[in-house]
């Protein structure tokens, strides 16, 4: 651990707190904070996955919440059919089966939509990713069997070996460990040869192509990995709230994920976690004062983007990294 720099220590410190504090609150009888932290941690996984493509890859996807929704429905629909019949091939309460479905379908959706979206750049990319996400949004809104607009109540959490997701502490610990693993995986990827190409192409695509990299394929690969991780976050979300609805994947939700990444500090390991924490905190505090909490939230985001280019992590490090 000697090789850790200051940012590394902050990251380890924050993650230790996040691993210990919520269970402690639960232990002294305060379940509320554990549940809040569970939500935070799951959101953070989604943000970590977005950070891979947005922060490191420069792909401003405005449709990332679609993967949360696909992952969540891929967990909820098998349970629905297990309880109410029909479509028996998909009916299951087996957590591993649902998990494979969540991750697999999200990755597939990322592959198909990414292959098309990544042909475009800039504003067009933002618009087309948003359009694909809205397509999924309207698709599920129109599926009356699964509750349409009202959403689908999930009768039973995923059945897993050794782990009981009905137990709040176990639910939290699984989510927390998943976050740590997701952060580790993304950290590993962005520092690998693949990651160097991804980051290089963000900075100067033409240069990387001229060197001999088919940057499109590298971006697409990153996009699929991010979609898969985010689908996993969707599976967790469905288990946590035992409910899934189209509103989970509206463009507003995708925007919130972008906020988290930028607010926390894009292209950093801890940034998305800080962003998710800040989002939960701001939402809790502001929404207790006013239902119009999105307005002050948006203003704060603009402030962060303008004045602290490194995001919250940049401020923690004691230096605005903007040049």
């Amino acid at each position: 651990m000697k090789s850790l720099d200051r940012t590394g220590w902050i990251t380890v410190g924050v993650m230790l707190l996040l691993g210990v504090l919520p269970p402690f609150f639960y232990w002294i009888g305060n379940e509320f904070y554990l549940l809040l932290a569970t939500r935070l941690v799951i959101l953070a996984i989604a943000a970590v996955s977005l950070n891979l493509i947005l922060g490191y890859g420069g792909m401003a996807s405005f449709g990332h919440a679609a993967f949360v929704g696909i992952g969540a429905y891929a967990m909820g629909i098998p349970v629905y059919h297990e309880f109410y019949g029909g479509f028996s091939a998909a009916a299951s309460t087996n957590g591993l089966f649902q998990l494979a479905l969540s991750v697999g379908l999200s990755a597939l959706f990322a592959l198909i939509t990414g292959a098309i979206s990544l042909r475009t750049r800039g504003v067009y990319f933002i618009m087309i990713t948003m359009a694909f996400a809205q397509m999924v949004f309207y698709l599920f809104q129109s599926l009356d069997e699964y509750g349409g607009d009202d959403g689908l109540v999930i009768e039973m959490r995923s059945e897993l070996p050794w782990i009981n997701l009905d137990h709040p502490l176990q639910m939290y610990l699984l989510s927390f460990v998943s976050l740590v693993v997701a952060m580790g995986v993304v950290h590993m990827i962005v520092n690998s040869r693949f990651g160097m190409v991804l980051r290089g192409a963000k900075g100067n695509d033409e240069r990387l192509v001229t060197l001999g990299f088919n940057t499109y394929l590298y971006r697409l690969t990153a996009y699929v990995i991010a979609g898969a991780i985010c689908g996993f976050a969707g599976w967790l979300t469905a288990n946590f709230s035992t409910f899934v609805s189209p509103s989970m994947m509206g463009w507003g939700r995708s925007g919130e994920l972008m906020f988290m990444v930028i607010l926390g500090g894009a292209a950093t390991a801890l940034g998305p976690v800080l962003g998710a924490a800040a989002f939960i905190l701001i939402e809790e505090i502001l929404s207790s004062f006013t239902v119009y909490w999105h307005l002050p939230f948006g203003l704060m985001l603009i402030g962060v983007v303008l004045f602290a280019r490194g995001g919250l992590l940049g401020m923690l490090q004691g230096r605005g990294r903007g040049k």
Partner: peptide, 16 residues
Amino acid sequence: LAVQACDGHSFRFVKP
């Protein structure tokens, strides 16, 4: 990165 470009493909995800 330029050296990496002529050292096989870069779909290698593990080693820093």
